[in-house]
């Protein structure tokens, strides 16, 4: 029953406070002036606070974040560009060094090859000379031998004719005969 007591109390206070007479508070015209006044004060205050204080603050925070993010992105891009430049530089240097190294190697190879070639040429020349000398000596000995053979054959032919026929053959005839025989 305490429940009932409180409800009666509530209704009692309602009647006491609702002294404006109308039963429907939202349409009670006697409260309109004060509500309008305080609405104007409250909304005007809110508008001024929002447009002057609060919204610029939030905008500044958001702007700072956007600026920071785009700044970070720009810095990252700059760093990446820098890294790429360093890498390109490094690669260029490597390529140059490689080229240089291969040039040195080529030079050394060329020098050695030239030396080898010249030495080989000298040796070959020497050998060729020796061969030529040897060949010349051989030809000379052969011709000498051939000349000896002719004279021996003439003498032998004179001797053979003398011993067979007892006649005498002149040296010129003998030589002619030997030459014919050698030819035939």
């Amino acid at each position: 029953m305490s429940n009932m007591a409180t409800t009666t109390e509530t209704t009692a206070t309602t009647e006491a406070e609702g002294g404006h007479g109308s039963a429907f508070p939202p349409l009670d015209a006697s409260t309109f002036p004060s509500q309008l006044l305080w609405l104007a004060i409250a909304f005007g205050l809110l508008y001024i606070l929002m447009s002057r204080v609060a919204l610029p603050r939030v905008a500044a925070v958001l702007e700072a974040r956007r600026g920071r993010i785009s700044g970070d992105l720009a810095r990252a891009k700059a760093l990446r560009d820098e890294t790429q430049a360093v890498i390109a530089d490094y690669e260029a240097k490597i390529a140059e060094a490689r080229k240089q190294a291969s040039g040195i190697a080529q030079g050394a190879r060329d020098t050695v090859t030239a030396q080898i070639d010249s030495e080989r040429a000298a040796i070959e020349q020497k050998l060729a000379k020796q061969v030529a000398d040897a060949e010349a000596r051989i030809t000379a000995s052969k011709q000498k031998a051939l000349a000896d053979i002719t004279s021996v054959a003439e003498t032998a032919a004179q001797d053979i004719v003398a011993s067979l026929t007892g006649g005498k053959v002149s040296a010129a005839d003998a030589a002619k005969a030997v030459a014919d025989a050698a030819k035939g």
């Binding site: 004060s34 509500q35 004060i41 409250a42 909304f43 809110l46 609060a54």
Partner: peptide, 16 residues
């Protein structure tokens, strides 16, 4: 100054 005014000002204060 009514409860309506109080809650209007409270709303303004809370938002700000």
């Amino acid at each position: 100054f009514t409860n309506s005014a109080l809650f209007m000002l409270a709303a303004v204060f809370l938002i700000t």
